[in-house]
């Protein structure tokens, strides 16, 4: 989807178009696959926390506190692909 198309969807509060975009983006153009990819990344993150192993909460707190929302949004996209890759089920055609 082009940027003008997305901006128009946001302006019109067209959530269906935006949700469709997010799924198409994560699914390499396949909406159903994208939906599964989103679930897959969350499941992978969840699995890592089941044993309550120690995590760097200070880093998380400082990052959320000090970084701008745009950087955090970029990080959010990066984390999605990180966890999908870590899951071992890589549906994408190329490399990160």
């Amino acid at each position: 989807m082009s940027l003008p198309y997305l901006k128009e969807a946001i302006e019109n509060d067209d959530k269906e178009k935006l949700i469709r975009y997010v799924r198409l983006h994560f699914g390499d153009g396949n909406e159903e696959a994208g939906k599964k990819e989103i679930d897959k990344s969350w499941i992978e993150a969840l699995k890592l926390l089941l044993d309550s192993s120690e995590t760097d909460r200070e880093f998380i707190f400082e990052t959320l506190e000090n970084k701008d929302a745009e950087t955090l949004a970029h990080l959010y996209f990066s984390l999605h692909f990180y966890f999908v890759k870590r899951s071992g089920e890589w549906i994408h055609d190329g490399n990160l």
Binding site: D28, H92, D93, G94, N95, L96
Partner: peptide, 10 residues
């Protein structure tokens, strides 16, 4: 050289 690209089969 290396490739960083998601949108075509590499």
């Amino acid at each position: 050289l290396e490739i960083h690209q998601l949108k075509y089969p590499t």
